[in-house]
Amino acid sequence: MSRLRDTYLGQAWLILLLAGVFGALLAAVHLKLSPRIEDNIRAEIMREIPGLLLGAEVMEGASITIEGDLVRIEPAAGEPRVLTIVEQPSEASALYQVAEGDPGRLLGWVARGQDHGYADVIELLVGLTADTARITGIYVLNQKETPALGDGIVRSGFRQHFVGIPTDNPLTVGRDAAEAAQSPYAIQALTGATVSSRSVCKIVNDTVALVKVEIAEEPERSDARP
């Protein structure tokens, strides 16, 4: 009996048992809650896509209604707009084709991409023009970067750097404003969070490269048919 107690199994049986029980509990929680969490994320994506393609200024004070694939936007000033957002098959986490009006005029593309940041996975939405030639904006869907340093990637000041950058070359990271000003493809890193800034640029580069090829290979995708 005392020999059994001295073995690793004799010492660690409680931890192994608890790991099994807790693992099963977490699996059950995941099964139960993940559809609801995915619905929440989808609703958030649908709400953020218009801002990525139409610009933050259009969305300021606008009310948004989501009905299936349709997003109705009533701006504070100007005519209401209706966008049709259709998810397309892609190697990226997700690719959305966005068209406006009826018949649909292709407005642009929004791709969902992810990779490791400094602390955990960073998930982004990357908006592209209809011809995929320029980035229209980025939105941080999920991040757990260092509070007050890396989590600055969610702020509009940092995200604004990406708006309008051509996609014919990969983005690079400049450590300061002077370094970033040297190239039209350089993004100014957040102070004290170069790793988070580099991760965001890498995700944007990888996602853009992937969906550009996919869209170019299948030109019929660009025929917006909402």
Partner: peptide, 27 residues
Amino acid sequence: LTIATFVTIADRTLAAFAYPMSKLLGP
């Protein structure tokens, strides 16, 4: 091990039923 299990449950529950608050509290 015990604490981590219940923290994960709390985190997922917030993400499912109080998504904006879950985003606000972040890490």
